[in-house]
Simulated assay, not measured.
Amino acid sequence: MEILQKLVPFTFLLVLLPSLVSSQEQANQVGNCTGNDNNPKLSPQLTFEATVHGFLLWASMGFLMPVGILIIRMSKTEECRRRLKILVYVHAALQIVSVLLVTAGAIMSIKNFENAFNNHHQRLGLALYGIIWLPALIGFFRPQRGTNGRSVWFFTHWILGTALSLLGIINIYTGLEAYHRKTRKSVRVWTIVFTIQISFVAFFYLFQEKWEYIQKQGVILGNEPTGPTNQQISPKEKKKELAMEPC
């Protein structure tokens, strides 16, 4: 299961990115041949609305959703029940706010923009609008740990959340390119900034995977642990130690 969880995000990227890049190159070639006659410049009002739309989608799928994923991953090694509940509630709150922002962006795009769905940005956006509520709704029906449906629920919730986050990130890049074509404004700075942000998120995602392993290796302190290991501590002593741990 852990191997599958690590491979699925990269599989999505490997499958989707080549098609996006090739299609984008074809679109650029067509635009160059026609002199961009089919892409008239947006009015100042539409430019402002497109900017707000992009900010809403970035705040939701480019920031809040990845941060929510990082926060819930912190609960894997959390033993204090109070802190565990806090992490779960923060994760849920971030995801709910993210869904609401995406919904607001969807309403804005349907109301104000021409939706011909003839490019990747609009098609991906339509798919995201259709499934954005599923992980949130599934999250409210979380089975108790140890029940039969817990594994199925966890995998479904995880795969939907991961797919949405990856598709949202890809759609932000396609949205920046669409904004550039429509407004003739450079988006290089925003693309670089967003790439740096996503790189940090990916780094922390991978770092979380190895943090416990690094601690066990004694790399943080530079020395091997001198105290007894978990295997050497009796269950009674371990239970007493956890009960005394401040939360």
Rank of each mutant, 00 (worst) to 15 (best):
R81A: 13
H53C: 13
L94A: 06
E49V: 04
V102I: 10
T51M: 06
N38M: 11
P40I: 10
L57F: 10
S60F: 02
Q95A: 02
G62P: 07
V99N: 01
K85R: 12
I72S: 06
L87M: 11
V67Q: 09
L57N: 15
W58Q: 12
L101A: 01
A59H: 01
N36R: 14
E49L: 13
M61G: 15
S75P: 02
N36V: 07
G35S: 09
L94S: 05
N39Y: 10
I96G: 04
I71Y: 07
S43M: 07
T77H: 15
A92Q: 01
Q95P: 01
E79G: 12
Q45L: 03
L64D: 04
Q95E: 04
K41L: 02
R82H: 08
S98G: 13
I96V: 12
L56Q: 15
A59T: 11
V102H: 04
V88K: 03
H53L: 07
N38P: 03
R83K: 15
V99A: 10
I86L: 15
L70R: 05
C80N: 14
L87P: 05
T77F: 14
T34D: 11
G54K: 05
T51N: 12
T77N: 15
G62F: 07
V99E: 02
A93Q: 04
K76L: 11
A92T: 01
F48K: 11
L100H: 00
R83W: 14
N36D: 14
A93V: 10
V99S: 05
C80A: 14
Q95D: 02
R82W: 03
V97N: 00
R73E: 09
R73V: 01
A59C: 11
L64A: 06
N39P: 01
I96K: 07
K85E: 08
K85P: 00
R82M: 07
H53E: 12
G35Y: 06
R83T: 14
V90R: 04
N38G: 05
V99H: 00
G62Y: 08
K41D: 02
V52G: 02
M61H: 09
R83F: 11
S60Y: 05
R73T: 08
L94V: 01
T34K: 07
N38D: 15
R73Y: 02
H53Y: 11
L64S: 02
F48M: 05
M65R: 00
P44C: 09
M74C: 10
L56Y: 15
P44N: 10
R73G: 03
T51S: 14
H53S: 14
L56V: 11
V67E: 08
V90N: 05
G35I: 11
S75R: 15
G68N: 01
V102D: 02
W58A: 12
D37R: 13
V97T: 09
S98F: 00
M61R: 08
V99Y: 01
I86T: 14
Y89E: 09
F48E: 06
M65C: 00
V88D: 00
W58V: 14
L87N: 04
P44F: 10
S75K: 14
L70Y: 03
M74N: 08
P40Y: 09
M65I: 00
P44W: 08
I86N: 12
S60Q: 06
I86E: 08
K41V: 10
G54D: 06
M74T: 06
